[in-house]
């Protein structure tokens, strides 16, 4: 099965050529890969690009598998989420970028990987404030996202 992907820079529309039957999730992965490729964050190496692709693949799966779940533990102990944590420090800028664009429950992962917690007690549970704290921390650490 072959795929020819053309991205129109202004509208981020896709044209899929060939005989394809891509699932919605697969399309999301492809979209994020394409967006990543066009973003101002240019991968410095093939390894970085691979990390990004792996992260987005796992993130999409995580999001799908934890849909509608309320338990933070279940959301965070999800195997795909744990694999992201296992990717270590190199995945942090990708998480921060994702957090910036679409606040989600990435805080367990960030704390587990970085071993820090820049969120003060009074902001715990306030997703907007927690996001601000982590993004500020990330900028302070020199991450580009």
């Amino acid at each position: 099965m072959s795929t020819v992907l053309e991205i129109q820079r202004d509208s981020f529309e896709f044209e899929f050529e060939g005989n394809l039957a891509l699932s919605e999730e697969h399309k999301k992965i492809v979209f994020w890969q394409a967006e990543f490729a066009q973003s101002c964050y240019s991968p410095a190496s093939r390894q970085e690009e691979n990390i990004g692709q792996e992260f987005y693949k796992l993130a999409v799966q995580w999001r799908e598998e934890t849909r509608y779940l309320s338990s933070i533990s279940e959301i965070s102990m999800n195997p795909e989420y744990q694999k992201i944590i296992g990717m270590g420090g190199e995945v942090v800028p990708f998480i921060l970028r994702e957090l910036k664009q679409s606040p989600a429950y990435w805080f367990w992962a960030l704390k587990a990987i970085t071993r820090v917690d820049p969120v003060p007690v009074q902001h715990k549970g306030n997703i907007e404030k927690m996001t601000e704290c982590w993004l500020k921390w990330g900028l302070g650490q020199g991450y580009v996202f």
């Binding site: 309320s70 933070i72 533990s73 965070s76 367990w108 704390k111 917690d117 715990k124 549970g125 907007e128």
Partner: peptide, 28 residues
């Protein structure tokens, strides 16, 4: 929205995520 969860909604709040997570990330 990720801004609130079921516990918050049950107490008619929409500004926090309440959960007794062991990583101390959310309100409790």
């Amino acid at each position: 929205t990720t801004q609130y969860n079921c516990i918050a909604w049950a107490i008619e709040k929409d500004d926090l995520v309440w959960w007794p997570d062991t990583m101390d990330q959310y309100s409790w």
